[in-house]
Amino acid sequence: MKLSVSRLELSAKINWGRKHLTSILKKTLPLLGIGTVISFTAIPYPIFETWIKGFTFLGIPSLLYFGSSAILYLTKGKSKIRCTNEELHIQNGKTEFRIPTQQIAQFYLKYNSDKTRNSDHAKVDLMLITKDHQKYDCFNAKGLPAKDGRELEDTLQQFLGIEDYYVEGEYQVVGHQKESLIESDLPKGESVGQILSFGTEEGIILKKFQYNWDQSLPDQLFWVETGKDLSILYKKEEHFYKESKINTTLFFRETGFTSNISWEHLPNIFHYKNELFELIEETSGLFLSSYAEKKEIPVQQRFYKNLNQNNWFRIVLYSNLTIEISKS
């Protein structure tokens, strides 16, 4: 396998014929060598007295051996893989497969027991799993040596910045079971890189966060680059709301709370700049800062609205420490 990574693209070429041939030659060439040496020393000379006899005993087997190896080499084909920041392109012989990199959730290795049975080393298939849980076999079950597979999987994931996590049934090449990351369970909808329209504005989605609530449907938060600034949009029940962050100390001072108030003691009602806000919803769940998260991030949220229902405050407690207050 030839693997090369530059700043702009990753490319790999796999010559299946060469791989197959190398493994067969490794197994059989010593046998052929030993056989030839012994033949020369043990078989009486009269066998080789004419070239026809010599060819029959040594030439024909050698021709058959190298001929069949050459046929194997030519019939196995090649695969090419090319990945840029936008697209992954895989070519297996004449068949092609393209996928935008934003849709890729993870690469993983699947044990190929058929190919392993006849091999000295474990063989694996490189699988691709998308954010909408579709699975693709990158090389149509041709069986890569496990170490090559791991190198390719890791290099692709590093190139794209995808966190490596355990997929059920994954073959572990280097051991140390990968962590089972928590995956986002709302893969559909807006994704990073798409253009999002909200009100009279529109922009490119830079980041997507998700709140998986225990008792209600998940909410999402987007960072959208409009060209002028970074807009923070909170998506709740299919509606987008533009938010801005409020300094916690200034907020607590404005509302008259003590500065070191604990989460449990936050009141259900408060005044902020002569407006009354009351608690509408209190939820808890898990926060996902990207598609998959290494560790569970507990999150609690208190949702306050004013009487006209046109402004809100969202007070969020992340991992039982960081409080963040957003105003819509």
Partner: peptide, 18 residues
């Protein structure tokens, strides 16, 4: 045998624009 803890990954490719 202990596995070294690694930081969160960031992409390796370089953007010419944006």
């Amino acid at each position: 045998y202990q596995q070294a803890e690694l930081p969160k990954r960031k992409r390796q490719y370089f953007n010419l624009f944006h």
